[in-house]
Design a protein around this nucleic acid. Structure first.
Lengths: 217, 217
DNA sequence: GGACTGACAGATATTGAAATCTGTCAGTCC
DNA sequence: GGACTGACAGATTTCAATATCTGTCAGTCC
């Protein structure tokens, strides 16, 4: 039943400090392992049914042990949300920090974000729905994530302004305006629309409008 | 208890056809009167509790009589939604059909839409929440409403292109792009953000970006 | 005869008792 | 002595019985 449970007759590890950077044996309870198992439980049971007791059971420990690492169920779910959002950052920062002209970089960043979100939503709709719930529960984490995304945008805009490719705008508020204007193509609440015919044309149209507003004539 | 109920000893009207365009006496059951009462019941009990029986009770008739005019509860709610959305059209079409340069008209149309929505949300949050639920139930009605709004936008854009004020764009898809880009400022799902500090600056920034993308350099 | 009623079947919502879960902590076990 | 357990109180969820609602229609009443 459990993917990690019943570590049955195995002896508990005695000295873990011999090789400080070696991977922890699966018998050691760490935040990372709890997080992984929580994702697993969430995936299986869904956000409504997944309980701390389920996570503990899957790990083969008592739920009291889980509370030793995460102060509350909310904190545990928040950490899972954080983890998931962090993945999104990394992939896109490549575009933000690349060399070359700003316009295609901005286009690719926006298209990359849209494509990534759409894949997440399409490849495993159930898991996506689960994360939609978590995201709804953790607006503070999400707000921070959004700020990071807008900072990436601002870096691209700043580059474009510096190179004279874009008109002289204030990068930070402009980045926010770009984020807001493309809202429909990254807010998961609109995921259902991302699979309608004509969505790519609509995305292109908004991108064109935004980029025309930025380009030095 | 009921605002309309107990029309007690009054005799039923005998001949209604004498003056065809006279206002119906309140004792006559008409779709319009049912709609009004339904709005009232919705306002009082909220979308979850308001029932067809409640509406009938408020009208002082049996619920069977309500079903004579509206085939189902869903149809009744849909009609209420339609009615509400129709009000939004009318106010803004003034901007869409006005004379003068397109840029300020477009700006005022967008600002007018945002202001109207924000007032609806702020003046009576409970009623707004009620209509949010109705709107969620009636996506077909909402989709039609959105098409009408985009048509109004397209008329402004077309005027701007004709007068050489805007660059030569295809009005219909451009209007849709403008609608999409300003999404955050008209989709009621974001109502909570409309009262955060800085929202007006964010709105202006998106408007500026969009209008710069339209203006002939 | 056409507007309206009210009883009805099936669907949906409410309720309260029982089960489960969250979060704590004194105590156990290396 | 620090990681872990398991019993516990209070909060939350589940489940099944009960009540209410939706939609229909034969029948009533001007």
């Amino acid at each position: 039943m459990s993917r990690y449970g019943h570590y049955g007759g195995l002896p508990a590890p005695s000295s873990l400090m011999e090789r400080p950077y070696a991977p922890m044996p699966p018998e050691t309870l760490t935040p990372a392992r709890i997080l992984e198992t929580t994702e697993d439980v969430l995936r299986r049971y869904g956000p409504a049914k997944a309980t701390v007791v389920d996570v503990a059971r899957a790990l083969g420990v008592s739920h009291g042990s889980v509370y030793r690492h995460f102060g509350s169920k909310a904190a545990l779910r928040e950490a899972v949300t954080q983890r998931w959002l962090d993945q999104s950052h990394t992939a896109l920062s490549a575009f933000a920090d690349a060399e070359g002209p700003a316009e295609p970089r901005l286009r690719e960043w926006l298209a990359g974000l849209f494509a990534a979100k759409r894949h997440k939503a399409g490849d495993d709709p159930e898991l996506f729905a689960t994360y939609m719930v978590l995201v709804g529960e953790n607006s503070a984490v999400v707000d921070r994530h959004i700020e990071t995304m807008i900072e990436q945008l601002a870096r691209i805009v700043e580059g474009g302004v510096r190179d004279g490719e874009f008109i002289a705008v204030d990068p930070a508020p402009t980045a926010r305006a770009i984020w807001d204007a493309t809202n429909r193509f990254h807010d998961p609440a609109y995921a259902a629309e991302w699979f309608r015919p004509g969505i790519d044309a609509a995305f292109e149209a908004v991108c064109d409008l935004v980029l025309r507003g930025l380009r030095r004539a």
